[in-house]
Design a protein around this nucleic acid. Structure first.
Length: 443
RNA sequence: GCCGUGUUAGCUUAGCUGGUGGAGCGGCGGACUGUUAAUCCGCAGGUCGCAGGUUCGAACCCUGCACACGGCGCCA
């Protein structure tokens, strides 16, 4: 079996007046004893199909009447241009067969009412039925947007001669705090699921010089927010001979490239989701301002927010800070005490590290964290000891610096967060097919 | 880990100060129609999250438990 014709092409007018065969699923149906309408859907759209009892005969007519929502069908007929039909085209059925019927005793459980409710968030029911929810219009659109975001990341890096490079998922040490590691049994020892590609990327940096990945990262955070998953997709890059500002420029260019790609490839999906395309164009066309941490603290203090120098900026403060931002903003030069050991202290003022976070507007928060790495053996040992981090799991990381260390840096971008922000989703779960959080690993 | 809200039919929900649980969608049957979230009539479908308690009487009040959702911290 083979499928040659897709509904989207029919609705574009490529088959007007022709006899064709469509394969798809019943989205909705209605009618009487003499005429029956089936709205057929496939991955590219929907089209109304009309069956008249006199034309198709009793057997086919009854079979179509019994095809409940989400039954799969093969339908043959003539394409008619008809304004009464959604999309301007319809198929006048000549023959049809039900391939995968749906049992009336267990009809498709996702109803209009359940879907309406999902517009404002995700119910337990829809999460439990995720395997079926995926085929609804909203999820299908989200998945297509997601695909374009992934494609845009690959094309950005590949067009600039970055090499895609893979790191292991089983690791021995933490990148961020150890409390958020997933521990897994490993032949009588303990291993952990990786939180980031970064440390292994730094090992390959002297070989490849410009490298990137898109891979899952795992963090055992019990976060219950619209921005967190325990398994999320992480786009990371690392460059040799690059400092904080070069890395930051790549981050800005990448996010702008993703925004532009969505406008080019997913205009209708974004519109259907109610997203304002002018907003996405603004994110694509304008530069992203940089602001030093100290400036941010002063701004916040000026707004009457209780915040002290040296604190990391939590989400509530990010939100206040970004509420008037029209485009993403970089925050740079955080205090050393607020960041992990691998961030390089600023030679001009070692109280600070050469780092940056990119904060998305509209309350979506941090989408990129990156910066320059501590690259000399002496400095990395000092920083590790300063933080009372054990050296053993990082031996390879330190060793890399003993052989021709060079200035380098990189960033990690939360791909799901970017999808969530650019699609205007209410929750990060909406943009990933099977979301994982602290309470859910099924379906 | 902390704070908040909730759990009523397959789904979405109404249910006032305690007095025999209603509706819409979906399903089934029928009527009608070039319908389009079709419409109209009818039928089936509920130990009101679980366990105790108060009461003549509990979906409703009390206690405990379970689960879910939202938010905070942490971060991408």
């Amino acid at each position: 079996m083979q499928k040659d014709i897709f509904i989207g092409e029919v609705q574009s007018g490529h088959y007007d007046g022709q006899k064709i065969e469509l394969k798809g699923w019943v989205n909705r149906s209605r009618g009487s004893k003499k005429i029956w309408f089936i709205v057929l859907r496939d991955s590219t759209g929907r089209i109304q199909c009309v069956a008249k009892k006199d034309t198709v005969g009793e057997d086919i007519f009854d079979a179509l009447r019994g095809a409940l929502i989400e039954s799969s069908l093969i339908i043959r007929g003539i394409v008619n241009v008809d304004e009464r039909s959604e999309g301007g085209h319809e198929l006048v059925i000549e023959s049809a067969e039900v391939v995968g019927p749906v049992n009336p005793e267990s009809p498709f459980p996702i109803t209009e009412s359940a879907m309406e409710n999902a517009d404002g968030g995700e119910t337990e029911f829809l999460l439990d039925n995720r395997h079926l929810y995926l085929r609804t219009g909203r999820m299908t659109q989200m998945l297509k947007i997601r695909s374009s975001v992934f494609g845009a990341i690959h094309s950005y890096f590949r067009d600039r001669d970055f090499t895609e490079y893979q790191a292991p998922c089983f690791v021995a040490g933490a990148v961020e705090g150890g409390s958020t590691l997933f521990e897994v049994p490993y032949f009588g020892r303990k291993a952990y699921l990786t939180q980031s590609w970064q440390l292994y990327a730094e090992a390959a940096m002297p070989a490849l010089e410009r490298l990137y990945t898109i891979a899952p990262s795992f963090r055992a955070e019990k976060s219950r927010t619209r921005r967190h998953l325990t398994e999320f997709w992480h786009a990371e890059m690392e460059i040799a001979w690059g400092g904080n500002s070069e890395v930051m420029q790549h981050g800005e260019n990448l996010v702008r490239h993703i925004s532009r790609t969505l406008i080019d490839e997913r205009e209708s999906e974004l519109s259907n989701l109610g997203r304002d395309l002018d907003l996405i164009a603004r994110y694509a066309d304008n530069p992203y301002p940089r602001m030093r941490y100290d400036e941010a603290i002063e701004t916040l203090q000026g707004m009457g927010v209780a915040v002290e120098w040296g604190q990391d900026l939590d989400y509530s403060k990010e939100k206040v800070l970004t509420q008037d931002f029209e485009v993403p903003h970089f925050l740079t030069h955080y205090p050393k005490i607020a960041k992990p050991f691998y961030h390089r202290p600023d030679p001009d003022d070692p109280k600070y590290v050469l780092c940056h976070d990119l904060l998305a507007p509209e309350g979506y928060g941090e989408i990129i964290g990156g910066g320059e790495r501590t690259w000399s053996e002496k400095e990395i040992l000092e920083r590790i000891d300063e933080e009372n981090t054990p050296r053993e799991p990082y031996e390879f990381y330190i060793d890399v610096r003993r052989y021709g260390g060079v200035p380098h840096g990189g960033f990690g971008l939360g791909v799901d967060r970017v999808c969530s922000w650019l699609s205007g989703a209410d929750h990060i779960r909406e943009v990933i097919p099977f979301p994982r959080d602290s309470r859910r690993v099924t379906p």
